[in-house]
Computed example of a mutant assay.
Amino acid sequence: MSDFLIDVVLILVKLGLIFGVLLTMAAYLVFAERRILGRMQLRHGPNRVGPFGLLQPAADAIKLLTKEDFIPAGADKVIFFIAPGLAAVTALLTFAVVPFAPPIELFGRQVPMVVCDLNVGVLYFLGLSSLAVYGVALGGWASNSKYALLGAIRSLAQLISYELSMGLAVIPVILMARSFSLTDIVLAQQGAPFLLLNPPAFLIFLISVVAESKRIPFDIPEAENEIVAGFHTEYSGMRFGLFFVGEYINMVILSSMITVFFLGGWLGPVLPPIVWFFAKVLACCFFFIWTRGTLPRLRYDQLMHFGWKVLVPLALLNVIVTGGVLLWIKG
């Protein structure tokens, strides 16, 4: 078999594995969230479908697939169809540059444990996170509903605001690693994770990704008691489900980015690297769930004030201080 065919086969295998693992994780994160929140709120959560309720995600999928799928009379049908897919696809594409283990020896060659090890992986991640807002915007606009449009506008304002602080929080990581490659960023943390070297960047990034994933206390896009159900008010069936699949895949992706940027990626003693990577990702996912069961929702004015008047100035200050310290150490 030629080297080209081997490369193609390896890429297809990695894509298939990532696709399967991400969809499975997204489905069972919903189940895990319902069980964990149930325990936090002194109730059981889903425990009837299958042993310990483990078949609940399959039951939810069947329910969504068999529910009536209706389209509002005045909706833009083409965009109405496309919008839910954008939310899920952009999240899936982001994982193409996430390294989840060091290269392994296979077929007499070093095979990187990443679909595409781009030397501008950070820019790729930031670019796709910017595209993710289109699914929300188009879903709300194409529905021809004032409630959905209002939810989409509020969502856009939130996502754009916190995307800025998220991008600024990544700059100190790039400065410390001296690379835009996610693999290089992980290898630069062999001495100590960037969480310990730059805690302010970690906190700013963590808060920003919680807002980017539209989770409590930043779940203004889905503030049910205020705007019915947000940008997906007019969706039903599997299209409604796709928005939530995209949300939970995005939670896994952002947890992976926290792991790569600040927690040392696959690095760790004793256990295999891939175990360390997924253990850190699942710990971050648990944090997302924990905040949902603990914190109250922010008001819209509080959310925007915190983003623009607190996080953005702190992130800019941290960039300046980090650059100054690195120059001082180099000098």
Rank of each mutant, 00 (worst) to 15 (best):
I216N: 00
C285R: 02
R215P: 05
P200N: 03
I253V: 15
W266N: 00
K309E: 04
Y235R: 11
W276L: 09
I253W: 04
V209A: 00
V228F: 15
P272K: 06
L298I: 12
F277A: 03
T294L: 14
I216T: 09
I227E: 03
I207H: 00
I220W: 11
F278H: 04
V310C: 05
E247P: 05
S213Y: 10
E224M: 07
L263S: 03
L267P: 06
P221G: 06
R292T: 08
A229R: 03
N225Y: 15
L295N: 11
V270L: 15
P296W: 08
R297P: 10
A315D: 08
F277Q: 05
A211G: 02
I289A: 04
E247A: 06
F218P: 13
E222C: 08
L311H: 07
G246C: 13
V209R: 07
G265R: 10
I320W: 13
F277E: 06
F262I: 13
I220K: 09
E222P: 04
G307M: 05
V245S: 10
V281A: 11
Y248P: 02
G237T: 08
L298N: 12
F244V: 12
T233I: 07
P221D: 08
S208V: 12
V210W: 14
G307D: 04
A201S: 15
G307K: 05
A279S: 11
E234P: 15
Q302C: 00
C284V: 15
F243R: 06
K309H: 02
F277L: 03
I258W: 01
A315L: 09
F243W: 03
Y235H: 14
V228S: 04
R292H: 04
E222L: 12
W276Q: 06
N250P: 03
H232N: 11
P199Y: 07
G246Y: 09
I320F: 14
I274E: 07
P272N: 05
L311V: 06
L271F: 15
F287H: 08
L203D: 00
I227S: 04
Y248K: 05
F277K: 00
P313E: 10
I320E: 10
F286T: 12
V260I: 15
A315Y: 13
W266M: 08
I289M: 02
P200D: 01
D301L: 13
V270R: 09
V270A: 12
G230W: 07
Y248T: 11
E247N: 01
